[in-house]
Simulated assay, not measured.
Amino acid sequence: MLSRAADNLYWMTRYVERAEAMARILDVAQRMSLQRNAGLAGKSDEWEAALIIAGCDKAFAIRRGRVTRRAVIDFLAFAPDNPSSINACLRAARENARAMRAQITTETWESINAAWLELQGLTLAKVDADGPQAFFDWVCERSHLFRGVAEGTMPRGDAYNFMRLGTLLERADSTARILDVKYHILLPSLGEVGGAIDYYQWGALLRSVSALRIYRQIYRDAILPRRVAELLVLRADFPRSLHACFEGIFSILQRLRGHYRRDYPSVRLAEGMLMKLRYGDIEAIFDVGLHEFLTAAIDGNIELGAAIARDFMQPA
């Protein structure tokens, strides 16, 4: 496959997954703010935390200044000058899809094109009037529809492999960021640990990654930070966990290596990250520091993305 085609397909799915991640980030901030407004004592910086998770806090400070609910939703959802906003991500995904019309199925193109066209009819005022939760759910549903259509119609060749690779790499990044900000930035005072606000924040986090019911099925206990971290980091049977993402990434890179019969540095990087997760222990991770572990995972994900770009998406 030509490097340009691989790049377009890879970034098409990364942008769709990033749009979903932004909706999930805003969803957890919204849920936490509602809990605070309902009378639960706690910090009021969940909207600032949303910007930090998204990596947009510095850009927001320069372009918007004061952090408010409406300003953050507008910046992360609709702002054309924010390349990570839902609007910008779906536009970029559609442009990549349009360039790859010959490589993707008609149904895959129509799903992303329809999502983009529908988004053009939405504004911050309409989202406020209808309730932001409905908008966040809509973004996630369109992302799920896109993946489901691609999964059900795309042949299992190189195009599908690069599409899946983009999804998994972006998903690993968003899972690590969401967990890190809750644990490190929104960590309550010692007197509040284990209290109502702490419990509801962890519950909101699990909802934001569609994991609350799965958590209860697996652990059948109160929501505990160590078990939440174990589910989102080490459980290979949870599809949004770091372990599950890197299982998929490594498997795809192995297939690509076998197909092109070359030894790629990205394969070794992915294998090293997978081994840390496969043989990791949550108690050891907490002893070292969950924040430090997640920061290293995010940095490793960025390094792996750069290696994949060098290996497959730059002309030889």
Rank of each mutant, 00 (worst) to 15 (best):
T175F: 00
G248K: 03
D74F: 05
L277F: 03
F136C: 00
S210L: 06
A172S: 07
P188M: 09
N96F: 00
H243S: 05
M163W: 00
R262H: 11
A59E: 10
M154P: 07
I53A: 11
E292L: 12
P83D: 04
R227L: 13
T105L: 03
R101E: 05
G42Y: 00
H184A: 14
Q30L: 15
R278L: 13
S251C: 10
R31V: 08
F75G: 03
N82P: 04
L294H: 01
L304K: 03
I104M: 05
L165V: 10
I197N: 10
E271T: 14
L145C: 09
D45N: 13
S33L: 13
S210I: 12
E46F: 09
R14C: 05
A41S: 05
A61L: 09
I197R: 13
V28W: 06
L242A: 11
Q201V: 01
L186M: 01
I308V: 02
G305D: 02
Y10V: 01
V228E: 03
C56G: 12
R213E: 15
A88S: 14
Y260T: 08
G42H: 02
G194H: 04
A93D: 06
L117V: 13
A129S: 15
T13G: 07
E283V: 12
L2Y: 09
G258F: 09
L165Y: 12
